[in-house]
Measured scan of single mutants.
Amino acid sequence: MTEYKLVVVGAGGVGKSALTIQLIQNHFVDEYDPTIEDSYRKQVVIDGETCLLDILDTAGQEEYSAMRDQYMRTGEGFLCVFAINNTKSFEDIHHYREQIKRVKDSEDVPMVLVGNKCDLPSRTVDTKQAQDLARSYGIPFIETSAKTRQGVDDAFYTLVREIRKHKEKMSKDGKKKKKKSKTKCVIM
Rank of each mutant, 00 (worst) to 15 (best):
Leu133Phe: 05
Lys101Pro: 01
Ser106Asn: 08
Phe90Glu: 02
Ala66Tyr: 11
Ala11Val: 11
Arg149Leu: 08
Val103Ser: 04
Asp132Val: 07
Arg102Pro: 04
Asp153Trp: 04
Val152Thr: 07
Leu113Lys: 02
Leu23Pro: 00
Ile163Gly: 02
Val29Ala: 02
Val81Leu: 07
Lys16Pro: 15
Lys184Asp: 14
Glu98Val: 02
Tyr4Asn: 09
Val114Gln: 05
Leu159Val: 06
Glu63Arg: 02
Lys165Cys: 05
Ile46Phe: 11
Lys88Leu: 10
Val125Pro: 09
Lys42Trp: 07
Lys178Tyr: 06
Glu37Ala: 15
Ile24Glu: 01
Lys176Ala: 15
Arg102Ile: 04
Val45Gly: 13
Ile187Val: 09
Val7Met: 06
Glu63Thr: 03
Thr35Ser: 00
Ile24Tyr: 15
Met67Asp: 02
Gln129Phe: 14
Leu19Ala: 14
Tyr71Thr: 11
Ala11Ser: 11
Asp154Asn: 07
His95Gln: 12
Asn116Arg: 04
Arg135Glu: 14
Lys180Thr: 08
Asp132Glu: 06
Ile84Gly: 14
Cys118Phe: 09
Thr127Met: 05
Lys177Cys: 12
Gln129Ala: 13
Lys177Leu: 11
Pro121Met: 05
Glu63Cys: 04
Gly13Asp: 13
Phe78Gly: 03
Tyr137His: 10
Ala155Leu: 05
Ser17Gln: 02
Val45His: 11
Tyr40Pro: 00
Asp30Met: 07
Lys88Asp: 12
Lys184Asn: 03
Gly48His: 11
Cys51Ser: 12
Ser65Pro: 03
Tyr137Glu: 12
Arg102Gln: 14
Val44Glu: 08
Asn26Tyr: 08
Leu79Cys: 08
Met72Gln: 07
Lys16Phe: 01
Val45Met: 12
Glu37Thr: 07
Gly174Tyr: 06
Thr2Lys: 11
Leu6Ala: 11
Phe28Ser: 01
Glu49Tyr: 13
Met72Trp: 07
Asp47Leu: 07
Arg164Cys: 05
Arg164Gly: 09
Lys5Ala: 04
Ala11Met: 08
Lys169Phe: 15
Tyr4Phe: 12
Leu133Pro: 13
Asn116Glu: 10
Arg73Thr: 12
Asp153Asn: 07
Asp153Arg: 05
Arg102Phe: 06
Lys101Thr: 12
Asp33His: 01
Ile187Asp: 15
Lys5Asp: 07
Leu56Ser: 05
Asp54Glu: 14
Tyr64Ser: 01
Lys42Cys: 06
Phe28Gly: 00
Val14Asn: 12
Asp126Glu: 07
Leu113Gly: 03
Lys180Trp: 13
Ala18Phe: 00
Leu52Val: 14
Tyr40Ile: 00
Tyr40Asn: 00
Val125Lys: 08
Gln150Val: 02
Leu6Met: 06
Ala146Ser: 03
Gln22Tyr: 02
Leu56His: 09
Lys117Glu: 14
Asn86Ala: 12
Thr35Met: 01
Ser145Lys: 05
Ala59Arg: 00
Ile21Glu: 01
Cys185Met: 04
Cys185Trp: 04
Met188Gly: 14
Lys88Thr: 11
Thr158Cys: 10
Val103Ile: 10
Glu107Met: 15
Gly174Cys: 07
Tyr64Cys: 01
Val44Ala: 11
Ile46Cys: 10
Ile24Gln: 06
Tyr137Leu: 10
Val8Tyr: 01
Val29Cys: 04
Lys176Tyr: 14
Lys104Met: 14
Asp30His: 12
Pro34Trp: 00
Ser65Tyr: 09
Leu133Ser: 07
Ile100Ala: 03
Cys80Gly: 06
Ile142Asp: 04
Leu56Cys: 14
Glu49Gly: 10
Glu143Asp: 08
Thr58Leu: 01
Ala66Asn: 14
Ile139Trp: 04
Val109Ala: 08
Asn116Phe: 01
Leu52Glu: 15
Gln22Pro: 00
Leu53Phe: 10
Gly48Asn: 09
Leu52Ser: 14
Val9Glu: 00
Glu107Gln: 05
Arg102Tyr: 10
Met72His: 04
Gly151Lys: 11
Asp57Arg: 00
Phe90Asp: 14
Asp126Cys: 06
Gln25Ser: 15
Tyr157Ala: 07
Ile36Arg: 00
Ser136Arg: 07
Lys178Arg: 07
Thr74His: 11
Lys5Ile: 01
Asp153Tyr: 06
Glu76Phe: 10
Ile21Val: 04
Ile55Phe: 14
Gly115Ile: 13
Gly15Lys: 14
Arg97Met: 15
Phe78Asn: 11
Asp154Cys: 05
Thr87Ala: 12
Asp154Ser: 06
Ser181Phe: 08
Cys80Ala: 08
Met67Trp: 15
Lys175Asp: 03
Asn116Tyr: 02
Ile46Asp: 14
Val9Tyr: 03
Phe28Tyr: 10
Ala130Trp: 15
Thr124Tyr: 08
Ile21Thr: 02
Lys117Met: 15
Leu23Ala: 09
Tyr32Cys: 01
Gln43Thr: 11
Leu52Tyr: 14
Ile36Leu: 01
Lys169Met: 06
Val8Thr: 15
Ile55Gln: 01
Lys167Arg: 10
Met188Arg: 11
Asp38Trp: 00
Ser39Tyr: 02
Cys185Phe: 08
Glu49Pro: 13
Val29Ser: 02
Asp108Ala: 09
Gln61Thr: 09
His166Leu: 08
Leu113Arg: 03
Ile24Phe: 15
Tyr32Trp: 06
Leu52Asp: 13
Arg68Asp: 01
Leu23Thr: 14
Ala59Asp: 00
Val109Gln: 08
Gly60His: 00
Asn85Ser: 09
Met170Glu: 15
Gly10Ser: 06
Leu133Gly: 09
Ile84Asn: 12
Val125Ser: 09
Glu3Asp: 12
Ile142Lys: 08
Val186Leu: 09
Glu107Gly: 10
Ser106Ala: 11
Val112Cys: 09
Glu168Met: 13
Ala155Asp: 02
Phe28Trp: 12
Val152Trp: 13
Arg97Tyr: 11
Lys104His: 13
Thr127Ser: 07
Asn116Ile: 03
Asn86Pro: 08
Ile187Tyr: 10
Glu91Ala: 09
Ala66Val: 07
Glu168Asp: 06
Lys178Pro: 08
Glu37Ser: 15
Phe82Glu: 04
Lys88Glu: 08
Tyr96Thr: 11
Gln150Lys: 03
Thr50Trp: 07
Gly115Asp: 05
Lys179Met: 08
Ser181Ala: 09
Asp47Val: 05
Met188Ile: 04
Asn116Met: 14
Asn86Met: 03
Asn26Phe: 09
Asp33Ser: 00
Glu3Cys: 10
Tyr32Asn: 01
Val8Phe: 02
Asp47Glu: 10
Leu79Ser: 08
Phe90Cys: 06
Asn26Met: 07
Lys104Arg: 13
Lys175Gly: 11
His95Ala: 14
Gln25Leu: 15
Ile24Met: 14
Val9Arg: 08
Val186Tyr: 09
Val109Asn: 02
Arg102Leu: 13
Gln131Ile: 09
Phe78Thr: 02
His94Glu: 15
Ala83Asp: 15
Val152Asp: 09
Lys16Glu: 03
Cys51Val: 13
Ile55His: 02
Lys172Thr: 13
Tyr40Lys: 00
Tyr71Arg: 14
Thr74Tyr: 10
Asp57Tyr: 00
Met111Glu: 02
Gln25Lys: 06
Ser17Asp: 00
His27Gly: 12
Pro110Phe: 02
Gly10Ile: 04
Met111Ala: 04
Leu56Lys: 12
Asp30Lys: 07
Lys172Arg: 05
Ala155Tyr: 07
Arg102Gly: 04
Glu31Gly: 02
Cys118Glu: 08
Val44Gln: 14
Lys101Gly: 13
Lys42Tyr: 09
Val8Glu: 03
Ala18Asn: 15
Cys118Trp: 06
Ile100Gly: 02
Gly77Asp: 05
Gly12Val: 07
Gly13Pro: 15
Val8Lys: 02
Asn86Asp: 13
Met67His: 03
Glu62Lys: 04
Ser136Tyr: 11
Lys88Ala: 13
Lys180Ala: 06
Tyr157Thr: 08
Val109Lys: 03
Lys101Arg: 12
Glu62Val: 03
Leu159Glu: 05
Val29Phe: 15
Val125Glu: 12
Gly12Arg: 02
Lys42Pro: 03
Val103Arg: 13
Gly77Gln: 02
Asp47Met: 13
Gly138Ala: 05
His95Glu: 04
Leu120Lys: 03
Asp69Phe: 10
Lys101Val: 14
Lys167Phe: 07
Asp173Ala: 12
Leu53Glu: 03
Asp69Leu: 06
Cys51Lys: 14
Gln131Arg: 09
Asn86Arg: 11
His27Arg: 03
Arg164Trp: 04
Ile46Ser: 12
Leu79Glu: 01
Cys80His: 12
Glu107Tyr: 06
Val112Phe: 05
Ile46Gly: 07
Lys16Leu: 00
Leu53Val: 12
Gln129Thr: 11
Val109Thr: 12
Lys104Phe: 15
Asp57Pro: 00
Asp105Pro: 05
Gly13Ser: 12
Lys128Met: 08
Glu31Thr: 03
Gly12Ser: 13
Leu53Ile: 12
Phe82Gly: 15
Arg68Cys: 02
Lys178Val: 06
Gln22Lys: 12
Gln22Val: 04
Ala59Tyr: 00
Leu133Ile: 08
Ser122Ala: 10
Lys172Glu: 06
